[in-house]
Design a protein around this nucleic acid. Structure first.
Length: 353
DNA sequence: TCGTATCTATCGCTGGGATG
DNA sequence: CATCCCAGCGATAGATACGA
């Protein structure tokens, strides 16, 4: 009975045990929290959990747990965190947060950061716009961002209808003014302005404030005065007010366009200026694309490094097992040679009666 | 290629036991 | 006794295998 009590692990995970588990899950989160479920990924997850359990059990001051227990514990932690953060969000909406709830789970932001796509809609809304920083380190498809893209596309279609543009002419404008395709434009828009994901309207209107003068000149031949009014209408869309700071360059262009189109005499110089600005825009977009590419490559290298670490760990475990086996057989061989030296090979077998 | 069956991981809920 | 935690269970979704 005593032995059983010693071997039997503590029923509850202590804070130390939880922090050890959390650190290990954080370490392997790219495998464990991967949403893919094909045979290869599932097998990899299984092996990773086993490796994690091995690593966990080799830590001091933790009781022995198998990987299923650890996995379940992590699921419970996730579920609790989600529940609490959802509750917090509801409370925040009601503007009455209990301080007790806030401190209930220590490091819940850390837990949430391991599974950002699961927590996106449960996180508390930002206090100030400047505080909102999307997790740049999170990899894979962010479904929330995908939703924003879909919304953005719907919004674009509505705006096209509003401006009496056909899709074909809109794409042509994009090609003429920016020199790249519609998809490229949306992509750059999203990549260039991550803090504005929560306010797609702002981004769209900033872009349109750039586009509108060109639209008028190149396609519709409207009077600059009319266009200026239209532009102003777009720029003063209520959602933009106080939600986020517009890009300085965009703002400059907008102001420049606004001023220049008020006078017919300065139209040509304004055009030139516009083209210059557009050129600058193109260059900055290219720069952003380069930065993005750079980031992708760095992330890829980090991912490979992590995979290397895991492979090394797996290799180390295998080597340990093999060495133990080797030692076992060597010992056995020693025992046999002691009992049965080569000189006395015709002696009867020791265990035989 | 499509439809169906089977398997498995994940998630949410809940009962039972431990704890204060 | 209320609360919390662990672990079991059922529902669901996605992957895979297989036959028509």
């Amino acid at each position: 009975k005593m032995q059983n009590e010693i071997i039997k692990p503590a029923k509850y995970f202590s804070e130390v045990e939880k922090s050890v588990l959390l650190a290990l899950v954080e370490k392997y989160k790219y495998v464990l929290e991967c949403k893919k479920s094909d045979a290869r990924t599932i097998a990899l997850k299984q092996r990773t959990w086993q490796a994690l359990a091995h690593e966990y059990n080799s830590q001091p001051s933790v009781s022995l747990r198998d990987f299923k227990q650890l996995k379940k514990c992590w699921e419970n932690i996730k579920a609790r965190t989600k529940k609490i953060m959802a509750h917090e969000r509801r409370e925040k909406v009601k503007r009455s947060i209990s301080p007790l709830i806030n401190t209930h789970i220590v490091g819940k932001e850390k837990i949430a950061s391991i599974m950002p796509e699961q927590m996106y809609f449960l996180q508390s809304p930002p206090e100030e716009d400047s505080e909102y920083q999307p997790d740049a380190s999170s990899q894979g498809i962010n479904y929330a961002v995908m939703m924003q893209v879909v919304l953005l596309c719907i919004l674009l279609i509505f705006m096209l209808i509003q401006l009496h543009l056909t899709l074909r002419s809109f794409i042509k404008i994009l090609q003429v003014t920016y020199g790249f395709s519609l998809t490229g434009c949306v992509k750059v828009l999203l990549q260039a302005q991550p803090p504005k994901f929560r306010c797609p309207l702002t981004s769209v209107y900033i872009h349109f404030s750039l586009l509108t003068p060109t639209i008028a000149l190149e396609l519709f031949q409207q009077s600059p005065r009319e266009l200026c009014d239209e532009d102003k209408e777009l720029v003063h869309f209520p959602v933009c007010e106080g939600t986020s700071q517009p890009e300085p360059s965009c703002s400059d262009v907008r102001i420049a366009a606004d001023k220049n189109y008020r006078s017919k005499a300065s139209q040509e110089s304004a055009l030139k200026k516009m083209h210059e600005e557009e050129h600058h825009q193109q260059m900055s977009i290219l720069q952003l694309q380069l930065i993005q590419m750079n980031e992708v490559h760095v992330a890829k290298i980090q991912q490979i490094e992590r995979e290397c670490e895991m492979a090394e760990e797996e290799h180390r475990i295998k080597m340990e097992v093999l060495n133990k086996k080797k030692m076992y057989w060597e010992r056995k061989l020693q025992t046999i040679t002691k009992e049965w030296p080569v000189s006395s090979y015709n002696r009867p077998f020791p265990n035989s009666p």
